[in-house]
C-alpha cells in the first residue's frame, strides 16, 4: 500500500474512532451506545493494523466484539429505554465534565505534540507476532502469569459478588421487585 493510502485510511479510522466515541454519550439508546463504542474500538483496532501491530489489532476487535455484546445485554437488562424510542438525557455536572474532558484532551495532546520522542520505527513487520509471543511466554512469563491470576481472581470475585445464594441465604431475600411506576421522591 502506498503511503498516501495509509495516511488516508488512518484519518478515516481516526475520525471514525473519535466521532463514534463521542456519539456513545449522545445517543438515546443504550444498545446503540454500546455498539457505537464497539465501532470506536474497531476503528482503533484498524489503526493498530496500519501500525503493523497485526495480532493486537485483530485481538482487540475479537475481544471487544464479545465484550460490547455482553455490555449490550446488560444495557437492555438494567436500563429503561433500550430501543431509544424516547429522548433521554441522564447526565449530571455536564459543564464540569465537558471542561474536564477538554482539559484532559488539551493536556495530553500538548504532551504528545511538544515532547521530544525518539523516532525509531519498527524495523520490519516480519516476526512481530513471534517476538510478542516470546516476550509474553518466554523466560519468566511474568505478565502472562500475573494477568492470568488477576483474571481468575476477578472471576471468583464477580461470582461471589453477584451470585444469587450466599452463605446467609438468597442474596435478594427481603428485597422487592422494582415497581412499575417510579417511587415517589426518588428511589428510596
Amino acid at each position: 500500500m502506498s503511503a498516501f493510502l495509509v495516511d488516508l485510511a488512518f484519518w478515516v479510522f481516526a475520525v471514525g474512532a473519535v466521532w463514534t466515541g463521542y456519539r456513545v454519550f449522545r445517543t438515546d439508546s443504550m444498545v446503540r451506545a454500546s455498539f457505537l463504542l464497539l465501532a470506536s474500538l474497531v476503528n482503533v483496532g484498524a489503526i493498530m493494523l496500519l501500525l503493523s501491530a497485526e495480532y493486537l489489532g485483530f485481538a482487540l476487535i475479537f475481544m471487544m466484539a464479545l465484550e460490547m455484546m455482553v455490555m449490550a445485554l446488560f444495557m437492555v437488562m438494567f436500563m429503561m429505554n433500550p430501543a431509544g424510542l424516547n429522548p433521554m438525557v441522564m447526565v449530571h455536572q455536564n459543564r464540569l465534565s465537558a471542561v474536564a474532558g477538554f482539559a484532559a484532551f488539551l493536556g495530553l495532546s500538548a504532551v504528545g505534540v511538544l515532547a521530544d520522542f525518539p523516532d525509531r520505527p519498527v524495523p520490519e513487520p516480519v516476526g512481530v507476532v513471534a517476538r510478542l509471543g516470546e516476550e509474553l511466554l518466554g523466560d519468566s512469563m511474568l505478565v502472562f502469569e500475573s494477568v492470568g491470576v488477576l483474571l481468575l481472581a476477578t472471576m471468583i470475585g464477580a461470582v461471589a459478588l453477584s451470585s444469587q445464594r450466599g452463605r446467609y441465604g438468597a442474596a435478594d431475600e427481603g428485597s422487592e421487585p422494582p415497581p412499575m411506576v417510579p417511587r415517589e421522591g426518588g428511589a428510596r
Partner: peptide
C-alpha cells in the same frame, strides 16, 4: 497525530465517565 487522536479518545472518555449518571454508561 496518533497521540492527538488518543488524547481525544481519552478526553471524550473523561467527559463520559464524569457526566453520565447510569453505572453502565460510566463504564463506557
Amino acid at each position: 497525530t496518533l497521540l492527538v487522536v488518543s488524547a481525544a479518545l481519552v478526553g471524550v472518555g473523561v467527559y463520559g465517565a464524569l457526566s453520565q449518571q447510569s453505572f453502565v454508561m460510566i463504564m463506557m
